[in-house]
Design a protein around this nucleic acid. Structure first.
Lengths: 150, 150
DNA sequence: TTAGATGCAAACGGTTTGCAGGGAA
DNA sequence: TTCCCTGCAAACCGTTTGCATCTAA
């Protein structure tokens, strides 16, 4: 039953993507839907190379160029979010429509914890008012170490 | 008088760097001090290539490799801060010991505004307590557009 | 039928590395 | 004198681009 719910949810995602492609007169190629499916089939963050390897392992014929192109579309229709956690390569994650969140990164391992604190919205408004700007997006990331168990 | 004050301040910076080099048994080469001086002589953010060009223009013989090496030392002794504003190249700025701040970036131009909102410290404590971690550093950046003048 | 999309491989650009020569300690 | 540091150039690696081929519309 829960699984059914998740599938329904993905159907919804597909629909959003389809509408986006149609609206912008982009072709609905099988590759694009396969990549969308692959991304939404796994949890957590990923980079392009990892996604590429994973799809190769699943015996899909896909090129890095197409991955980069398709990610661009998915970013544009906001189904995927891009992060640059202080490295010089990009990491991505599927957007969780409702669940806005920020990140804590362990210095040693790169492990990611997600959290949400509503006070960030207050800071955001403050910035918008102070500088007379519209904030389109933002990035808040804490870096640090775990405390000794003890 | 104010200028004098700034010079004194830079003397202090030099001292910090010297102490750091001595403590870690790194050599006090002229290149390292020249780079330090060049960085503290200019305002705002910079990337390695810009710094390289600027030093070439000032007729310094310096290699990119040394710039990268020295920046690494300056980061380590916290005289310089590193940013990755959503691009795949790093930007840096001299640390302002006392003036903690975050950034707003204009989507179109990349122009940077600095600001400070103390509420970020509350979020930081919250994260530390919630996940039982120590935050060593963080990054908060808003991206957006200026509002039409009216 | 045809313009947009794909796969492949080469190009690109910021960063890193290897190495011979130079200079701080 | 030692061996860390420097400049130079090549290597590296994530990303972008060019192009022949393919295919959604």
């Amino acid at each position: 039953m829960i699984k059914k719910g998740l599938e329904d949810n993905f159907e919804n995602i597909r629909k959003i993507f389809t509408e986006y492609l149609e609206k912008h007169a982009h072709r609905k190629t099988p590759e694009r839907y396969t990549i969308l499916k692959e991304i939404f089939a796994t949890e957590g963050h990923f980079d392009i190379e990892t996604l590429y390897i994973r799809m190769k392992n699943h015996k899909y014929r896909v090129s890095r160029a197409t991955l980069y192109n398709t990610i661009e579309l998915l970013l544009d229709c906001e189904l995927v979010t891009k992060h640059q956690f202080g490295t010089n390569y990009a990491q991505f994650e599927k957007s969780m429509m409702f669940k806005q969140h920020d990140h804590f990164i362990f210095n040693e391992t790169g492990e990611v914890i997600e959290f949400y604190d509503p006070r960030i919205e207050e800071i955001r408004s403050q910035v918008e008012n102070l500088f007379n700007v519209d904030v389109t997006h933002y990035s808040l990331t804490f870096y640090g170490n775990g405390r000794p168990k003890k």
